[in-house]
């Protein structure tokens, strides 16, 4: 038989091993400090049109205007978490006209809250002119963006004086946005 001296401490020893466990200090409230700071890039507007798009029934169109109703910027998630936005435009103009794109931001009362415009100068002796433009929304302009529900695009062709020959060439514009978020786990 196994001596009593071995037998006796056996079970208690195992139980102690099993149930005597330690923990070091942890703090689960830290999860409230979690902050996500993603930067989302998205394509915006674009066009790529030849001179013929600006001619209707033999006469030149010098203004094109369209608007969009957009409920994206007033979305609660955007309003609460967007801390900065950038709209980046890359233009390439081979038209023998200056091209001006004006972008107007209107709120739900149709009041203009923000405006910017991009100038694309006319091609010089047929070689295209490249343009880069960045519109940054921070502070007041960011607030304006967050109240926008309508965007009006106005494209103007501006001819030098005296008006040169018939319109030729093509114009291209590409754009993207960078949305900077700061999303906190706890408010």
């Amino acid at each position: 038989m196994i001596p009593r001296s071995i037998k006796k401490p056996c079970l208690p020893l195992i139980l102690v091993l099993l149930f005597f466990s330690c923990v070091k200090e942890v703090d689960f409230d830290q999860a409230n400090d979690l902050e996500l700071t993603p930067v989302m890039s998205s394509s915006l507007v674009f066009f790529d049109e030849s001179a013929s798009s600006f001619v209707e029934s033999g006469s030149e169109i010098d203004i094109i205007q369209e608007f969009l109703i957009i409920d994206l910027f007033t979305d609660t998630f955007i309003v609460e978490n967007l801390v900065k936005a950038e709209f980046v435009f890359l233009g390439k103009n081979a038209l023998n006209r200056d091209v001006n794109l004006q972008v107007d931001f209107l709120d739900d009362l149709d009041v203009l809250v923000h405006r910017f415009s991009i100038e694309q100068e006319a091609a010089v002796e047929g070689s295209e002119v490249f343009t880069e433009y960045i519109e940054t929304f921070e502070g007041d302009t960011l607030l304006a963006l967050k109240s926008t529900i309508k965007i009006v695009f106005t494209l103007r062709l501006i001819a030098e004086d005296p008006i040169p020959d018939d319109i030729t060439g093509r114009v291209e514009l590409q754009s993207s946005s960078n949305f900077y978020f700061k999303i906190a786990a706890a408010e």
């Binding site: 998205s42 394509s43 915006l44 507007v45 674009f46 066009f47 049109e49 798009s53 094109i64 369209e66 608007f67 969009l68 109703i69 957009i70 695009f153 494209l155 590409q174 754009s175 993207s176």
Partner: peptide, 22 residues
């Protein structure tokens, strides 16, 4: 596949307005 929007020159041939397009 999303490439962005072309509000100024929607598919006019099909009578589409910018808002239809959007």
């Amino acid at each position: 596949v999303f490439e962005g929007i072309n509000p100024l020159f929607p598919d006019v041939a099909n009578g589409q307005s910018a808002q239809d397009y959007w």
